[in-house]
Computed example of a mutant assay.
Amino acid sequence: MSGSQTNLRAAFMASPGPCNLREAVLLCLKGVCMGGADIIPGVSGGTIAFITGIYTQLVDAIRSVDALFVRRLLRLDFTGALAEVHLRFLACLLFGILAAVVSMAGVMNYMLNVHPVEIWSLFFGLIAASIFVVGKEINPLNAVNGVLILLGAAGCYFLVGMIPVSTPETLSFIFLCGAIAICAMILPGISGAFLLLMLGKYEYVTRTLKNPFLWDNFVILAVFAAGAVVGIVLFSRVLHYLLHRWHAATVSVLTGFMIGALRKVWPWKEVLESTVIRGKIHVLRTQNVLPDAFDGGVALALGLFVVGVLVVIVLERLSNRAN
């Protein structure tokens, strides 16, 4: 092995990330969970990152892709660039996220259309349990942080009740959608998929994911990805500053976001307004209702709610044991 290869390997191994195959596989599986959550309107990959204990690492890793990294890369200083970026962490996590997004987009669309009550019940349990997991990070839990929780909950509650809009399909707007949606990926309680729904581009993007290697779809996804990179690099710096400067206050607001998001994932809904786009019915506005009677369907929904809660408990314990 040449000296340059040795230096590159040393720089790669010196960056934060998994130290062995077991840790790499575990981090990749956490990425799969994040990716699966991110394609559900109303469920946040940031929530999964919080539950699995990698939230701060995620924000720091994204923040490591900075101007110094780009300058070293442009000067072909690959050793210096590798030493700067958290590549081992990002590579494992992103592999899991992308694998989940590409493979599960069609499945999630099917479940949301054919078994909506069941899938929303599962995710309602996931988010409800996650609120307590994330809320434990608030220290101290005082009156000020309590008010921030309420403000975060109110803001998210009204946000998820907004009506999706009709928007253009130009590449510049797709770029903007990528930048906005990716920011929500690292915000617990606010789903990037839901923001895409609000921007009128959820079906548009998930449809391209079903055939990503068609040239037109590839261009759309490339532009969307470019917007996502720009958005997350900029937003991660803001979030990193807030978490390190005002940790308890920031986590309080994030916990409130998750509480407000429960409005979106309530399983039983009554459609108030819908429209037909390309022969497919799109729901614009709903209101949450209670089930008409306790039957087998309600029992199944409650069972899936419990499953969601148990998944969060298991993930948290596995994460604590790994740490």
Rank of each mutant, 00 (worst) to 15 (best):
G135F: 12
L148V: 03
T275L: 08
S44A: 04
M162T: 03
K269L: 04
Q5L: 10
S103V: 12
V253P: 04
S252R: 04
A248G: 05
P164Y: 04
I174A: 14
G42M: 02
G200E: 12
H86R: 08
A143C: 09
P291L: 05
R9T: 10
V265E: 00
F158M: 13
S172Q: 01
P168E: 04
A222I: 06
S103I: 09
L243F: 07
L171H: 11
V223F: 05
R278S: 07
D216M: 03
N139Y: 03
M1C: 01
F69Y: 11
S319K: 03
T208L: 10
L150S: 14
S2M: 12
R278N: 08
P188Q: 05
L242D: 08
P41T: 02
L234E: 13
I259E: 01
N20P: 06
V283S: 06
L195S: 04
G192I: 00
V309H: 07
S64M: 05
T206G: 13
F305A: 12
C156H: 02
M198Q: 08
T170I: 01
W215Q: 12
D295H: 03
L148F: 04
A322C: 11
V25K: 02
L74A: 08
H244R: 09
H240R: 05
E137V: 03
R263P: 07
V233K: 08
W246L: 12
L272S: 09
L239Q: 11
R75L: 02
F173P: 15
A293Q: 11
L141K: 15
S121N: 13
L151E: 09
T79I: 01
I51C: 01
G303T: 01
R245L: 09
H247F: 07
